[in-house]
């Protein structure tokens, strides 16, 4: 964990340097990456680090599109639809990964959005989404995604 913090600090510094030097990078890229949230080991801790400990509301307004069986745990396509108003941030988590927080998607007061990415999953796990919308924190989880064990022993 220490190493990652160090890396990130290094990155902040060098990133700044490169950005200024090349003049290409928008200033907003330099905003804070939520280091603490990415370093936690449970979904709850990650959610707390991101949104505070005010409690989460279970909702069925968050839906997932992901395979039943991931062909390859290195690349699992995931889509999340959030049917809420004034969405500020969506956090995607894999509870069974060593560090559950995969990514967060930040926007300003959007409604009914969809986000998608491709993620690494160490082993079979559901997905969890935690969404901050309209000042409240919502959560939902997907069905379990099976990560296949390679067949050929080789």
């Amino acid at each position: 964990m220490k190493r990652r913090e160090f890396n990130f600090r290094l990155a902040s510094i060098t990133g700044f340097g490169v950005g200024i030097a090349s003049g290409l990078m928008p200033i907003s890229v330099l905003a804070n990456w939520p280091t603490a949230a990415f370093d936690t080991e449970t979904t709850e801790d990650a959610a707390n680090a991101l949104f505070g400990e005010s409690g989460m509301i279970e909702t069925d307004a968050i839906t997932f599109k992901a395979p039943d069986i991931a062909e390859n745990g290195r690349v699992v396509p995931v889509n999340i639809n959030v049917g809420l108003n004034n969405i500020e941030e969506i956090a995607l988590m894999v509870p069974e990964n060593p560090a559950p927080l995969v990514s967060t998607f930040v926007m300003s007061n959007q409604s009914n959005v969809a986000v998608g990415t491709r993620i690494k999953m160490g082993k079979t796990s559901p997905l969890v989404a935690v969404v901050k919308a309209d000042g409240k924190v919502y959560t939902a989880s997907s069905k379990e995604i099976k990560v296949t064990i390679g067949g050929c022993g080789g």
Binding site: K65, P67, D68, I69, A70, E71, V75, V76, P77, R118
Partner: peptide, 9 residues
């Protein structure tokens, strides 16, 4: 099942 995964890719 794999096809659904692939189509997303």
């Amino acid at each position: 099942v794999a096809r659904a995964d692939w189509e997303q890719i």
